[in-house]
Design a protein around this nucleic acid. Structure first.
Lengths: 408, 408
DNA sequence: AGGCTTTTGTTCACGGCAAGAGCATAAGCT
DNA sequence: AGCTTATGCTCTTGCCGTGAACAAAAGCCT
């Protein structure tokens, strides 16, 4: 958001601001509230909303609650408005969803896969293409979350699955040049927009699945690195172990935290994206393994808090359970690693509010981040002349809650 | 820079953009070039420049070189224009300078001190107050760089000097509510604006003095942390040492790199901000101590590159010499610590272009960052009516080069 | 030297935009 | 039923950047 510099761009800029406020507010704020929040005159808001409704971007419904005075409206997604496709590819399954402006999520498909690039991405790409055809011009983009570092152009490595420079866009074969993102970075993005990092200037988000990822969130944006692969806090040697990590380095923090570490701790086979159920069993039953995980997590958090001074640390994936089940061990390991000056007011360490749904929601947010720009909106307006009539159509999808439980 | 939302704010916004472009360009760009770069119509630029000249913010001089056509002008600092006071307080001396729009630096004073809060900050505060009185309304703010973490409200800790929660603004007694910043973060800011991190989206800056500081630079801004004390990459346990650090944690990377580490390596006394000359002697003569420092530096850099994926890593302070004298050892230690996928295209590791002047320049930039906003400029315009006549006055200062050698 | 070309600075009519006032609307409250 | 309150709509006003026409100040060519 560079800001308008000509009077012509002013209108476009305010259109984006209004749509962004609707989206970030979950399509729950009233028009009068939005007008106040954005500092607009009522007349200006009137013209803006009317224009956006005509463009097929917004649709107003009467507000449910009144106090007094003329009742206000609630701008929400247009029944034929933009849809973002979002997918979360984990080591053993993927999930595909359609998302409206405001963040309402409709799960379209959930499927297990065999862990190979072709086995995972081929069927996903077909599903994406099929649903995109069904939604037609409403589709504004797609994003895919993956459990490994993403390099320029969508090349992905997942060391413990044996993925080397996997060309994700090519294997998907989806014609809309999908955004390819790291699951941790996207979970952090979701946390920043709709979770416990909302409104936080500097936050640290850690995502625990088979291994550990982490990223800094500054002013609502994960710090993604030069080529988008900067969410790899797990690959710093913060705990003093000497293990060789599948990533090629030695002593990575990531090898001490997550499902793989849990399995290793009780002597079970691990790696290759297998053993989710067994790991959950360990998590539920082995106090010792959980404590070891939480201790390693705490030691690393201390180092990162020293370095970055975040206001809040959030944990997603298994991190939620580690926080709940072994919070004491976590904090006990964290304290001694802190600089003395950090001990007066250490950051809160909280479980994510979004659970396992963060990466998917983050994928959605990344699509809307690209769309909710002057360029994105002008493109839509150009391609959607006279959407006008504001009649609901049959295409509208059935809805689920935006947060949810872990996929099978 | 949130961007304008009303036609009234447009003018203010474009004023700021123009002044920012002049400042960032070192007051060296021609008006025609600035007009093109900012995408303005010639007429708009005309009105803007005329207005800013009248406000005492800009002064145009004919450009030195012509090609053809009507010769253009070069907008630069007004002879009675804004001045930023910038100070760099190191463990054994401080330096005070006045800076104009465009970044021209005039050193006002350089003095050694005894390392106590009162001994260092008292005389500096007096000098600042004296010079501020001399410059009068031209002073738009002051900033002070310090070699330790800065907490909310300007409380500073420098563990190895024994500074605990030193209230810097209070001890300075300077009436302009000075900005208090960490030397590493400010050196990184200068590097981002006028050094090797210019135009870099994600960079890593490391500052080596008595110990080691480091910070991530994203889109031209150091990531400063919740309370401004986020430039402490040195206090992560990245090298596997077991030493207790004066900061209160154990195994800090910072204890392996810098003047203190050099002195310790050859068995000399260290700490307390003493021994700069001896450390320089070690740096110049002891191959072994230098190699040990560079090796530890390289190992830590590898961890940070894994985590953050920066485009460039820059080194300031002693880091410049470590890079020159022991680049091989540095790279040799860095390589094995990298993730395999980072080895194809590792980031450049470069010495700073600003040498020891970075923290001072960063302090200047932080003052101008606060000034070059719509609020800052409107405030100046309110307080400087009819500056008009564009006649140079006697108050103008003598100038030195913006970059320079280390202070004694 | 004189005229032509090229580039930049200045001025001004024009169109677009948000602000704000006045009015209309649709509730709750008495 | 009438009053109060808050919101939506319409229209006028003032501000701003644009772009064209014109002026200015050089370099270039004959």
């Amino acid at each position: 958001m560079t800001g308008a510099t000509t009077s012509g761009e002013l209108r476009a800029h305010n259109r984006v601001r209004l749509l962004r406020a609707v989206h970030d507010g979950g399509a729950a704020h009233t028009r009068s509230r939005l007008t106040r929040d954005l500092g607009l005159a009522r007349g200006t808001a009137s013209v803006l909303v009317a224009g956006l409704a005509e463009d097929g971007l917004l649709h107003e419904e009467p507000a449910a609650e009144h106090t007094r005075g003329r009742p206000t409206q609630v701008p929400g997604p247009h029944p034929r408005g933009p849809i973002a496709l979002a997918a979360d590819v984990r080591e053993d399954a993927w999930e595909l969803a359609a998302c409206e402006l405001g963040g309402r999520v409709t799960v379209l498909d959930v499927r297990p896969h065999d862990g190979t690039p072709e086995g995972a991405l081929g069927p996903l790409g077909e599903a994406m293409t099929g649903h995109a055809r069904r939604f037609g011009h409403r589709v504004i983009g797609a994003a895919v979350a993956l459990a490994g570092p993403v390099r320029h152009g969508g090349l992905v490595d997942i060391a413990h699955l044996g993925w080397r420079s996997v060309d994700v866009p090519a294997l998907l074969g989806f014609s809309g040049s999908p955004i390819v993102g790291n699951d941790t970075a996207l979970a952090a993005l979701a946390e920043a927009r709709r979770g416990r990092l909302r409104g936080v200037r500097v936050g640290l988000h850690l995502h625990v699945d088979f291994d550990l990822g982490g990223v800094l969130v500054v002013d609502g944006h994960p710090v993604a690195g030069a080529s988008g692969s900067g969410a790899e806090f797990g690959h710093m040697p913060l705990t003093g172990n000497e293990r060789r990590c599948p990533c090629g380095a030695v002593g990575c923090w990531s090898t001490d935290v997550g499902a793989n570490a849990l399995l290793r701790h009780v002597g079970l086979a691990y790696g290759g994206g297998r053993g989710r159920e067994q790991a959950e069993h360990v998590l539920a039953t082995s106090e010792e393994a959980v404590t070891a995980n939480a201790t390693a997590l705490g030691r690393g958090i201390a180092a990162l808090v020293n370095a970055h001074d975040p206001e809040v640390v959030t944990l997603s994936g298994h991190g939620v359970e580690l926080r709940e089940r072994a919070g004491q061990a976590l904090l006990a390991a964290c304290g001694p690693g802190l600089m003395a000056i950090r001990r007066d007011a250490p950051p809160r360490i909280e479980g994510s509010a979004l659970g396992w749904r963060g990466s998917l929601l983050g994928a959605m947010e990344s699509v809307f981040d690209a769309f909710l720009t002057t360029e994105g909106i002008e493109l839509w307006r150009k391609n959607h002349p006279d959407q006008g009539l504001d009649t609901p159509d049959r295409q509208s999808v059935t809805h689920s809650t935006p947060t949810g439980k872990k996929a099978p």
